[in-house]
Design a protein around this nucleic acid. Structure first.
Lengths: 123, 123
DNA sequence: AGTTGACTTCGAGTGCGCTCGAAGGAGTTC
DNA sequence: GAACTCCTTCGAGCGCACTCGAAGTCAACT
């Protein structure tokens, strides 16, 4: 079995594309699965589970989920077994919003493309 | 007496989905094609051209173009003939950003769908 | 022992895009 | 002519999501 070297905040920042400031902010704000472990010197050590979770948070944020909803989802996961139905409901609702937004954006893009076509005709 | 074919701010708000506050804010901020005409009482009267432009602004905003870029585009249109190449460049750059964002969102959505599938298996 | 550099906490500041409220004016309705 | 409605300007305020800076701690290296 391979040993799992816990990462420091700087490495996690580099891997996730978040800043160290943002990582601390997310933790403070309850977006993570509890407080991150510390080493003897009081510095954060992120586990694989932390990294996977942060990746999920990043996806949710990148698709426009508000911080407060991510916090709510994190709380459900933290609460353990029994909250799966509610988590599913939350993700499905988000999925529907994202899909709608995607469709709307595609439609707007088509209109913008049309406009671009007009300009291409004039220059 | 005199029939006014142009619309008041409330009707424009209703048609565009913007608030009257936002319509005034856009005008103040230079996002429109100049100052909107006024009637004898000093109230705004929007022309068809205004309406079409506001629809364009709405599309640009809905696809994430920052206010300052919309302002810049508006300034180019206001400057008249000769700025078409620059307008085209601006729209193409925007188009590329939107497309990239669209692709990224679709990829994130697929990952979220996968997660939803996992939950559907547990409940 | 001293210096370096990555980390810590805390709270304040920033940028964006509205959003709102106060105070007042003009035109229609009774 | 009083009430009512819709509009006007101006500037302040808000919600979101970071973003930053100050001041201090700690381990490692020279």
């Amino acid at each position: 079995m391979t040993t799992v070297p816990a990462l420091g905040i700087a490495e996690v920042a580099e891997r996730t594309g978040l800043t160290t400031h943002t990582l601390r902010y997310y933790e403070r704000d309850g977006l993570l699965l509890g407080e991150v472990d510390r080493d003897a010197g009081g510095r954060r050590r992120y586990t694989d589970r932390d990294l996977e979770w942060i990746a999920m948070v990043t996806r949710l944020r990148a698709t426009g989920m508000p911080i407060r909803d991510v916090r709510r989802y994190a709380a459900l996961v933290r609460s353990g077994a029994g909250s799966e139905a509610e988590r599913l409901q939350l993700l499905r609702a988000h999925r529907a919003r994202v899909q709608a937004e995607l469709d709307a954006t595609a439609a707007h893009l088509a209109a913008i493309d049309h406009k671009i076509g007009l300009y291409e005709g004039t220059v």
